[in-house]
Design a protein around this nucleic acid. Structure first.
Lengths: 137, 137
DNA sequence: TTTCTATTGATATTATATTGCAATAAGAAT
DNA sequence: ATTCTTATTGCAATATAATATCAATAGAAA
């Protein structure tokens, strides 16, 4: 756990709270470097992880793309656009006891679960999926 | 789609079918290089992707670790050990209409979903989680 | 046998993330 | 206010996973 609230940590947290669209570490870096041009990418990566550990933000590991950082920490589900990579929340009831549906878990102790939808976002539908900024990996 | 069934493609497919534990591309490489010492890692990556596209195996993108290759193509759910990285199937009914539970999908067209559990496998429980071969990222 | 081209394998590159370490800066102690 | 202490930063290097480029090769077809 970290000890001090530095300028860097403060503006990184503010950036995640301002950018509400599940930014990647690099997108957070691009945002904070405007305000604090000397900040290092390493510091952004490091502080995002520390802010996650401290419970102020939540890291979201989405299959097939860079980690996203979420200003909302409560458990919820996400959808990823397979054309442009955009990640959004879905409004769906969280199922805390999902693991109770498992008949055979091969001796695993279950801790949590992630449910990630894949689809095409509204913008990419409009553009006929022609010029997405990212291909699905 | 590929045109020819090369030696390399054949032994890569056999390796995935033999290694039933959701191997990574590197683990498949380690297996096939025993039989075919001159094979290139690139060829393994490339063929695994082509075999996935051709429907003979299935790529599984698990958050926070390297892609796994599955000899079973039918939709099902997985659990990952956060200590050693092992990926296993869970025996649980597949829910094809999961997206029907979404109240607001923000205009996304939904295509598929992935449900991934995280937990501790039997082996890591026995070892008291002391010497896992991989830390959770 | 010769031609044609899919495929391979070596190398380089990209993307994402982490580690090591010297320099810095922010509190605490004096 | 000055010094001390150490958490933190930022640079550079490294790690890992995956992909791109391209000349050489192999194998089917003519």
């Amino acid at each position: 756990m970290y000890q001090r609230n530095t300028i860097q940590r403060t503006i990184i947290l503010q950036a995640v709270k301002r950018l509400q669209n599940h930014p990647t570490a690099d997108e957070v870096y691009a945002e904070v470097v405007k305000e604090h041009p000397s900040i290092s990418r390493t510091t952004v990566y490091r502080n995002l992880q520390q802010l996650d550990e401290a419970g102020f933000i939540s890291i979201r590991k989405i299959p097939g793309c860079a980690d996203r950082y979420d200003h909302i920490c409560a458990n919820h589900y996400h959808v990823r656009c397979i054309n442009c990579g955009r990640v959004a929340d879905v409004d769906m009831e969280y199922i805390p006891d999902m693991q109770s549906r498992i008949k055979d878990g091969h001796g695993f102790v279950f801790i949590k679960h992630d449910l990630i939808f894949q689809g095409i976002c509204l913008e990419c539908q409009k553009q006929g999926s022609k010029e997405g900024k990212e291909e699905s990996k």
